[in-house]
Amino acid sequence: MAFVLRSGSFADQGQLPKDFVHHAMGAGGDNVSPDLSWEGAPEGTQSFALTMYDPDAPTGSGWWHWVVYDIPANVTSLPRGAGAAGGAALPAGAKMGHTDFGSAEYGGAAPPPGHGPHRYILTLYALKTPKLDVPADCTAAYVGFNIHFAKIGEAKLTALYER
């Protein structure tokens, strides 16, 4: 079975609904993280990590919108709104790193008006370690560096959005 990441709210390569768009920066959305589910994790998976990244952001380095790590291996979904500040809706033990918005919570799509369509790539990583050894206030890039060395598989889901 293939390792697959899905959302009940949008299809792969489909339009990101307004619910999952940021409410700040003039984007006008609800800034709620989407529901996600997965199956087919590789044998040996001890935990998961999730990132949401916009490679099309006009920054020279893209934009990190969400990072969750230390998701237990027996978890196969995240509910809508799991990315709220404080992480109360995350599975026990899971943590969020700081995004490019500067906080440890989900930050929805907010591309500049007229910049064209942006890709919001959600990547779920299967990891060979039960936990990532990262500081509590770490950035998405720091988590990503550690994911790189613990990764045994990944599944992607991409949403599109433009203003």
Results as ranks from 00 to 15, higher is better:
T59F: 03
S37M: 01
V75D: 01
G83M: 07
T76H: 14
F20K: 00
N31W: 04
P42K: 10
L90T: 10
P79Y: 01
A41P: 10
P58Y: 07
Q15V: 14
G28F: 02
T45F: 05
L78G: 05
L36Y: 08
V32P: 01
G60L: 11
H22L: 09
G60S: 12
Q15N: 06
G93Y: 10
F48G: 04
G28R: 06
S61G: 14
L36V: 05
D70V: 06
S61E: 13
G44N: 09
F20I: 02
H23E: 10
M25P: 00
D19V: 14
G26I: 07
A24L: 13
M25Y: 14
R80Q: 15
A73I: 03
E43D: 14
H65A: 08
P72Y: 11
D70K: 10
E43F: 02
A27L: 05
A27D: 05
D19R: 14
G83Y: 08
S37W: 08
G44Q: 06
P34W: 07
G40V: 10
D56V: 04
F20P: 04
G28T: 04
H22I: 00
A82E: 03
D54L: 02
L16W: 04
W66A: 05
G83L: 05
G86W: 07
W63M: 02
A57S: 13
P17D: 11
Y69F: 15
S61W: 09
G62L: 08
Q15C: 03
P34V: 06
Y69M: 05
W66I: 00
N31G: 02
M25W: 12
W38M: 08
A85L: 13
D35P: 15
V75P: 07
G62P: 07
W38N: 09
A84I: 01
F48S: 01
G86N: 09
D70N: 15
A41F: 04
